[in-house]
């Protein structure tokens, strides 16, 4: 069984450590926090301040918003952002598939543990490995196409990664393949910890499989599904570099068919040697992520009420 989520301990615990105020402290909290705090401030605080500075400069000189207008009018940057936007369409697919898998696993008694491990396995595999293996699998004369041809689906044997019109969709399918395991486990964990009474009551009232899970289970799982949706939206906007880099040898090809914002930043900085433009694009990406962070934070508050706001 999956153990209950640690964050929930805090809700049921009658007294919390932090609730004691005015304690005569002998060492005080700050010494304990100092090493970690300095490290976080160096990595995040310094970086973000430096990023803002760099994005207003060119070779050390202040240039105002010039970098921004350069980046925003760069056709490649627009293409990259558009690709990130297209990738967002995988999020609803991911959420529905994960919900379906979680419900199926929940309803299965025989072999549930085995299926659960199997569904989750793609999520722990390193992306470089996934990229390389799928790259081989999806060659024009690779394993998938030879299987499709053997079964008589000659028309379906596409050039999955070589066709510019196809490559991004192939990439999203691979991302779905990997990320669905995370959602399944997340939703399943919540599902198991739900009170059984409502589900049993609905069953006794004669609700079938679909009605039961759409009308009774789904509403109760809303917070965790929302959390997953926000999380995956962040992944699609700013964590897909690895897939693209590995599957296209760092080029975002064929052509520019799979260039995403992260690759744009990486290429501007390390291949085109213009760190200022990269910094500007990174700052824009951070601002975009910020929107999701706010949403994420709101959900955190709702689901963990009582842990952080006493």
């Amino acid at each position: 069984m999956i153990k209950s989520v640690p964050t929930e301990f805090g809700i049921t615990a009658p007294r919390k450590l932090g609730a004691v105020t005015g304690r005569s402290s002998r060492s005080g909290p700050f010494l304990w926090i100092l090493p970690a705090g300095m490290c976080v401030i160096l990595i995040f605080g310094y970086s973000i301040i430096d990023l803002v500075q760099q994005s207003f400069k060119y070779r050390g000189d202040w240039v105002g918003f010039e970098n921004f207008s350069l980046v925003l009018t760069d056709p490649l940057f627009r293409i990259a952002i558009f690709h990130n936007f297209l990738l967002l369409f995988t999020v609803p697919i991911l959420a529905s598939l994960s919900f379906l898998c979680a419900v199926l696993l929940f309803e299965t008694r025989k072999g549930m543990k085995f299926y659960r491990s199997a569904v989750f396995l793609p999520y722990i595999l390193p992306i470089p490995v996934i990229g390389v293996v799928f790259g081989q699998l999806l060659q024009l004369n690779g394993a998938l196409n030879s299987a499709l041809r053997a079964m008589g689906f000659e028309n379906l044997a596409l050039d999955w990664l070589g066709d510019p019109g196809q490559a991004l969709w192939t990439m999203s399918a691979i991302i779905i393949w990997k990320e669905v395991g995370f959602g399944t486990i997340l939703i399943l964990a919540r599902l198991i910890s739900l009170p059984l009474e409502t589900i049993e009551a609905a069953r006794i009232d004669g609700a079938g499989f679909f009605r039961l899970h759409l009308k009774v289970t789904l509403p109760q799982l809303k917070p965790v599904i929302l959390f997953y949706i926000i999380n995956e939206a962040i992944v699609m906007v700013s964590w897909v570099f690895n897939y693209v880099y590995v599957m296209t040898n760092g080029q975002g090809g064929p052509g520019n068919a799979t260039v995403v914002s992260e690759l744009y930043i990486y290429r501007s900085a390390f291949q085109n040697k213009s760190p200022e433009l990269a910094a500007t694009a990174a700052l824009l990406l951070l601002l975009a992520t910020l929107i999701f962070i706010i949403g994420f934070f709101k959900i955190q508050r709702n689901t963990n009420r009582g842990v952080f706001n006493e």
């Binding site: 990595i43 970086s47 990486y266």
Partner: peptide, 19 residues
């Protein structure tokens, strides 16, 4: 601290590389 969890590493890449 929680909101820092979702800051993408690529954002920190250039400043940290310069450093």
């Amino acid at each position: 601290l929680i909101s820092l969890m979702v800051v993408p590493p690529v954002v920190l890449l250039i400043p940290l590389f310069t450093l």
